[in-house]
Design a protein around this nucleic acid. Structure first.
Ligand code: ZN
Ligand code: ZN
Ligand code: ZN
Ligand code: ZN
Lengths: 132, 132
DNA sequence: TTGTATATTGTTATAATATAACGTTATGTA
DNA sequence: TACATAACGTTATATTATAACAATATACAA
């Protein structure tokens, strides 16, 4: 069996829902909202999320245990992700900065370990919240 | 009341245990192991961890929900952390690289948001696991 | 030293996040 | 067809983390 070409039914349902949101969603909030479409159990959501994360359609915001759709055409796989997170309103934005990704993609430290993946999360206050 | 100068009893117990480990520990594993010292409930561990993370004595490895002691004298507060994580043996090392921290500390993206904190996690195979 | 504010503790219960284990059904390919 | 892999459905359970409440300890200023 070859690499999957199309998304399965559950994967499509979950991806569509997360894409509509424009912000990170929690797994159980996704579950609650796709129940009308037939997904009844957490595992159905988590499995779909796992696959979507694997292929880069969705990223997990680790510090928030939340999932957000990728809007960056370059993210074929989730191997280089960076986000800015507002600690006040929780707005999350995927950073798409070629200098940063180049820098981190080539980063090597003294251990000699070569990295195949990274995830970076910046925290601060977004423009809106800074001016409050 | 001023900034706390000394660690409290529970904070000391948890920190000592995590420092001995030399690797990230899960909160409930910490709990289990400090029960002989009188900490009985998850909250006692989580509260101590919260404080220790806040003051930079301990860092949380977000992708693993695990806690590791800081060995980097510069980490007075946990506002700039970077780790390498082996996806095979789960060995975690805190990266202490001044170029990297300088680069990320000064990073600004197009949104104009200035960051007060970041956490970076690199994934790959450590030397040992690469040669298996 | 007394009052006050804050930090920490102890405790029980519960919320939120995620996976194990099982059997079934669908899909791609030889 | 036969085979392997992927996805599905379902129930139960594991893991991670917090709510809520009452008590005690600590720092500091008046
Ligand atoms: Zn992306
Ligand atoms: Zn904000
Ligand atoms: Zn550190
Ligand atoms: Zn390793």
């Amino acid at each position: 069996m070859q690499k999957q070409q199309y998304l399965s039914k559950n994967q499509k349902i979950v991806l569509e829902h997360v894409e509509k949101a424009n912000q990170p969603l929690k797994a159980y909030s996704i579950l609650y909202n796709v129940q009308k479409k037939g997904l009844k159990a957490p595992l159905q959501v988590y499995r779909a999320l796992d696959k979507l994360v694997e292929i880069g359609k969705i990223h997990k915001i680790e510090s928030r245990n939340a999932f957000v759709a990728c809007k960056n055409a370059n993210c074929v796989v989730s191997n280089a992700t960076a986000f800015s997170i507002c600690e006040s309103c929780e707005k999350v934005t995927e950073i798409n900065n070629s200098k940063l990704s180049k820098y981190l993609g080539n980063f090597e430290d003294s251990s000699g370990m070569k990295y195949s993946k990274y995830n970076l999360e910046f925290f601060g206050l977004c423009k809106k919240c800074k001016n409050k």
